[in-house]
Design a protein around this nucleic acid. Structure first.
Length: 696
DNA sequence: GAGTTTGAAACT
DNA sequence: CAGTTTCAAACTC
C-alpha cells in the first residue's frame, strides 16, 4: 500500500502514458477537457474499488479522526476535479495524490472495460489490494459526505459525483460517461443526479455506513476479519498484500497510522504530517463510542488507541520513523447467519485504557446502527507503537512472540493462543473461538486463522456451527432475573451468571481454571455435570452466594486473579440496557463469550457503553470490585438462547483480568460502598439490576 | 522450560 | 448419546 514507488510515480509520467494511449486520445477528441478527464478517472477508480466508503461510516465518530486528514483527502479526490484548473505538479499534495491514484486508474479503466461497469464485487482482491490505500482514504474523505446531513459541502458533492460516476457502473463506457458527467458537473455542482446514483448504489439507510463494509465483505465473502497486525514497514506491505481485499476498512480507519506515514507525509512532506496522524489517536479514541454505537447492535467494536496524549507526538514521530503501525484487529461479520463472535476476548483491560475513560460512551442509537448483520470488532492491541516498535527483528520467533505475548498480557491483559496442531481452526483455539484472527502475539503454529485464509476460516466456522449453532455463542450467561434459569431453577450466584452448558469437571473440583465455570467467574449450576464441585462462585448442589464470603472470594481470586477486574467493569447497569436495546434488529448470533479470551481484548471494550469502563476507577476502587461474578452478563435461558441472541444485544461475558484487582469484596455489598462508580453496569432491559452495591 | 494434568472439543 | 481421542490451557516441578 505504501509502497515507496508510489511517491516516485510522478503524476506527469503516469499521466503522460495515459495521455499517449489511443483511448485517451479518442476521449480527448470528445472533450476539450483532457486533463480533468484523466483525473476524473482516478476518482472513479477510487470509487469503483471501494464502492461506498462514503456510506461506510455515516456516524460522525469515524469522521472525526478522519477529519484531520480531510485536507489531504481532498487533495486526492478534489484535485482531480480541480485538475482542469490546476496544473499537475504545482501542488505537492496534489502530486502526491495523483501519483497514488493514477497508476491505478488505468487499471481501473481496464477493469471497467472488462466488467463493463460491474460493481466492485467483481473486483479482484488484487485490485483491492492495490487500492487498499485508497480504500482507506476514500472513506475518510467521504466521511463528510455521509456523515453530514447537509449536502452542501462542495467537496462532498465533488466526491460523490466523482464516486458515483464510476461506481454506478451504469455507463457503457466509463470513460465516456466520466466525461459527460464531468461536463455536467462543470455546469452545475448542485446536480444531484450523481448523488442519487450513489444513493442507489449505497442504499441510504441510516446504516448506510455499513454498506461499505458490506462491499468489502462481498469481496471477502461475507466475513472480513482483519487482524490487528503489528508490522514493520517492510513487513507491513507484505502483510497487507497478504490480506487481499480483506483489509478492514474499519480497521484502517481506526488506525490512522497505517497510512499516516503515507498520507501524512504526502501532505506535509515531513514527519509532522505523520504526527498529525498520530494526533488522531485521541480523536479515534473519542470516536470509539460512536463507532460502537454505530456497529454495536449486535456489533461490537473493540478497539483502542494505543497512544497516550503525553507521548503521543513523540511516539508518533518515532513510529513514523520506524514506519511502524499497529493494525487493529477488525472483525467484520456480514450477514452470515450463525456467525457469532466470542466476545470473550473483550475483557481484561484495566490498564492502559485510561484515556478511554475520557470517552463518554454513547449509548447506541438505533439509527446509528449499521446493517444488522455486521459485526465490527476492532481489537486493538494494547501495544503502543513504541511497544511495538521494540520488536522489530524477531517477531516471528516463538519465543519472542511469547515474551511479547506475556508482556502484553501483563500490561494489557492481552492474551493470544498458542495452538500447535489445530491450525487455530478449532474451538480449541481461543482466538478462533472468539471469532478473531490470530495475530502477531499469538504463538500458534501452522495457523490458518488469518485473513489470508479467510475462506478457510469461514468455512470452518460454518462447519462448526452446523454441528453446533451455538458453538460461538456465549458460554457464560447471566440469569435474567438474577435467580432463575430457563427452567425456573434458581441460580444465586452474586452475578447471576452461569455457564450456559455447564462444566464437566472431575478432578479440579471446579476450583481451577480448568473449569470453565470457575474460569468464567460464575458458579456451577444444574447444567454442570461436575463432580465434587467446590466452585467458590457457587456450587452446583445449591451452594450460592452464601458461600461467597471474603475468604472464598479471595481464594478464587488467588486462583484466578486476572479475572477480577472485569467484574468491576460490568457493574452498574443502565447502559447495558442501552446496549441491549438497539439490538432488536440483529439477526446474527452475538459474540460468543467463552471467557477465555477476555483477557485478550482489553482496551476498547471499556470505552464502549456495553462494557463498562473501569478507567476511572481508582485502584482502590478496584479493590471493591466484584470478582468474576459479573463477568458474564446476560441471562439467556438455555432453550431460548437463539432467540435472545437475536433480539438482544449480545451478552458480554467479560473476563476480568486486571492483576491489580486483587481484592474482591463479598458480592452483596462492598462494591457499592467503597466505590464511586464511574463505570456502568450492564443490565438487560428485562433483567433486574444487579443487587445494589450501594449501601442501603 | 519441560512435563503433567485437566477438561473441552472433536471424533467415532 | 456415550465413549474415546485430540487438543491446548492450566498447572506443577
Amino acid at each position: 500500500m505504501d509502497t515507496p514507488d508510489k511517491t516516485q510515480i510522478t503524476p506527469s509520467s503516469s499521466l503522460s502514458k495515459f495521455e499517449d494511449s489511443p483511448v485517451f486520445k479518442y476521449i480527448s477528441t470528445l472533450s476539450p477537457i483532457e486533463l480533468a478527464k484523466s483525473r476524473q478517472t482516478d476518482s472513479a477508480f477510487n470509487s469503483i474499488a471501494f464502492l461506498s466508503p462514503s456510506s461506510l461510516f455515516p456516524s460522525p465518530q469515524i469522521g472525526c479522526h478522519r477529519e484531520s486528514r480531510f485536507s489531504v483527502k481532498r487533495h486526492h479526490f478534489l484535485a482531480p476535479s480541480n485538475s482542469r484548473v490546476l496544473q499537475s505538479g504545482n501542488d505537492s499534495n496534489t502530486d502526491e495524490g495523483a501519483s497514488e491514484v493514477q497508476p491505478s486508474h488505468v487499471y481501473d479503466d481496464q477493469v471497467k472495460c472488462d466488467n463493463n461497469g460491474s460493481s466492485s464485487r467483481g473486483l479482484s482482491s488484487d485490485l483491492l489490494d492495490e487500492q487498499s490505500n485508497l480504500a482507506i482514504e476514500l472513506p475518510r474523505t467521504l466521511k463528510y459526505d455521509c456523515g453530514s446531513p447537509d449536502c452542501s459541502m462542495v467537496p462532498r458533492d465533488e466526491i460523490l459525483k466523482n464516486t458515483s460516476v464510476e461506481v454506478a457502473g451504469e455507463e457503457g463506457s466509463s470513460l465516456q460517461c466520466n466525461k459527460d458527467q464531468w461536463e455536467e458537473r462543470q455546469q452545475s455542482f448542485e446536480n444531484e443526479r450523481d448523488l442519487r446514483k450513489i444513493c442507489r448504489i449505497f442504499p441510504s439507510e441510516e446504516s448506510a455506513g455499513c454498506e461499505w463494509v458490506a462491499v468489502v465483505s462481498d469481496v471477502a465473502d461475507l466475513l472480513t476479519l482483519n487482524s490487528s497486525i503489528i508490522y514493520e514497514s517492510t513487513e507491513g506491505q507484505d502483510q497487507r498484500n497478504a490480506d487481499p481485499g480483506t483489509t478492514s476498512f474499519a480497521s484502517a480507519i481506526l488506525q490512522p497510522q497505517d497510512d499516516s506515514s503515507n498520507l501524512g507525509n504526502a501532505e506535509t512532506g515531513d514527519s509532522s504530517g505523520s504526527c498529525k496522524q498520530s494526533e488522531l489517536a485521541d480523536p479515534i479514541t473519542d470516536q470509539t463510542p460512536a463507532i460502537l454505537s454505530t456497529c454495536l447492535v449486535d456489533k461490537l467494536v473493540v478497539s483502542d488507541s494505543g497512544l497516550k496524549k503525553d507521548d503521543k507526538e513523540e511516539k508518533c514521530k518515532q513510529s513514523c520513523r520506524q514506519q511502524r503501525s499497529i493494525r487493529r484487529r477488525c472483525l467484520v461479520f456480514e450477514k452470515a447467519p450463525g456467525f457469532g463472535l466470542h466476545l470473550n476476548s473483550l475483557a481484561n483491560t484495566s490498564k492502559g485504557q485510561n484515556h478511554l475513560s475520557k470517552v463518554t460512551p454513547s449509548p447506541m442509537k438505533s439509527g446509528e446502527v449499521p446493517h444488522d448483520n455486521k459485526v465490527i470488532v476492532t481489537e486493538s492491541s494494547p501495544q503502543t507503537p513504541a511497544t511495538v516498535g521494540g520488536n522489530e527483528a524477531d517477531q516471528n520467533s516463538p519465543e519472542k512472540k511469547r515474551q511479547k505475548f506475556e508482556n502484553i498480557d501483563e500490561s494489557t491483559a492481552c492474551k493470544r493462543c498458542n495452538c500447535k496442531r489445530s491450525k487455530c481452526l478449532k474451538l480449541y483455539c481461543d482466538c478462533f473461538a472468539a471469532g478473531l484472527y490470530c495475530i502477531e502475539p499469538c504463538s500458534c503454529q501452522d495457523c490458518f486463522n488469518k485473513p489470508i485464509h479467510e475462506n478457510v476460516v469461514l468455512e470452518t466456522r460454518r462447519q462448526i456451527e452446523s454441528r453446533n449453532p451455538l458453538a460461538f455463542a456465549p458460554k457464560v450467561i447471566r440469569s435474567m432475573d438474577d435467580v432463575s434459569d430457563s427452567r425456573g431453577e434458581t441460580n444465586k450466584t452474586p452475578a447471576s451468571a452461569r455457564h450456559k452448558r455447564g462444566c464437566n469437571c472431575k478432578k479440579s473440583s471446579c476450583l481451577k481454571k480448568y473449569c470453565e465455570c470457575f474460569q468464567g467467574g460464575v458458579g456451577c449450576s444444574s447444567n454442570c455435570r461436575c463432580e465434587g464441585c467446590k466452585n467458590s462462585f457457587g456450587r452446583k448442589d445449591g451452594g450460592d452466594e452464601s458461600e461467597f464470603d471474603v475468604e472464598a472470594l479471595e481464594t478464587s481470586e488467588m486462583k484466578a486473579p486476572e479475572e477480577n477486574s472485569l467484574a468491576v467493569v460490568i457493574s452498574k447497569g443502565e447502559e447495558y440496557q442501552n446496549l441491549s436495546a438497539p439490538s432488536t434488529n440483529t439477526s446474527r448470533l452475538p459474540f460468543a463469550y467463552s471467557g477465555k479470551l477476555l483477557k485478550s481484548f482489553p482496551l476498547f471494550v471499556r470505552s464502549s457503553p456495553q462494557v463498562c469502563t473501569t478507567q476511572e476507577l481508582d485502584p482502590s476502587d478496584l479493590s471493591s470490585c466484584r470478582p468474576k461474578f459479573e463477568s458474564d452478563l446476560q441471562a439467556i435461558p438455555e432453550n431460548e438462547t437463539p432467540k435472545v441472541l437475536k433480539h438482544n444485544c449480545p451478552p458480554l461475558a467479560l473476563k476480568p483480568t486486571s492483576p491489580n484487582c486483587k481484592r474482591v469484596s463479598p458480592p452483596h455489598h462492598d462494591c457499592s460502598s467503597s466505590t464511586t462508580w464511574h463505570t456502568r453496569k450492564f443490565i438487560l432491559k428485562s433483567v433486574p439490576s444487579f443487587p445494589s452495591f450501594s449501601p442501603p
